[in-house]
Design a protein around this nucleic acid. Structure first.
Length: 100
DNA sequence: CATATGACGTGAC
DNA sequence: AGTCACGCCATAT
């Protein structure tokens, strides 16, 4: 496993319960500038054994980047942690965004 | 080695 | 608010 992935996972594991972080934010914290796409790619390659709270990672503006079942599943988990969604179906980062 | 692809982000229309 | 195009780059084929 590449060291880059481990770094990304380590950062995601720091996200506190009830908060969410964006791909771009993670990319910056990992020192990869604005390569948010790679963060998403690494999460896609994630396995359950890593025990990474991938559900706390959302797209810019608090939008979930998954569709259909994926969206429903992630939303359900987040709501169970206390994260709320607005009428548009995304998360108000002003309140739930992770502040490092 | 050459292309295609994607759990993104941003800007144009 | 919805679509489309493009930059970015590690992986996959």
């Amino acid at each position: 496993m590449s060291e880059l992935y481990e770094k990304i996972y380590a950062i995601i594991r720091k996200i506190p319960r009830g908060k969410v972080a964006t791909y771009g934010q993670i990319a910056r914290l990992a020192g990869m500038g604005s390569h948010a796409r790679l963060v998403g790619y690494s999460l896609h390659a994630l396995t359950s054994e890593k025990r990474v709270p991938w559900h706390r990672v959302v797209g810019a503006g608090g939008k979930i980047s998954l569709d259909g079942e994926g969206y429903a599943a992630q939303r359900k988990i987040l709501e169970s942690e206390g994260v709320e969604f607005n009428e548009k179906g995304n998360i108000p980062l002003a309140r739930f965004g992770w502040v490092k």
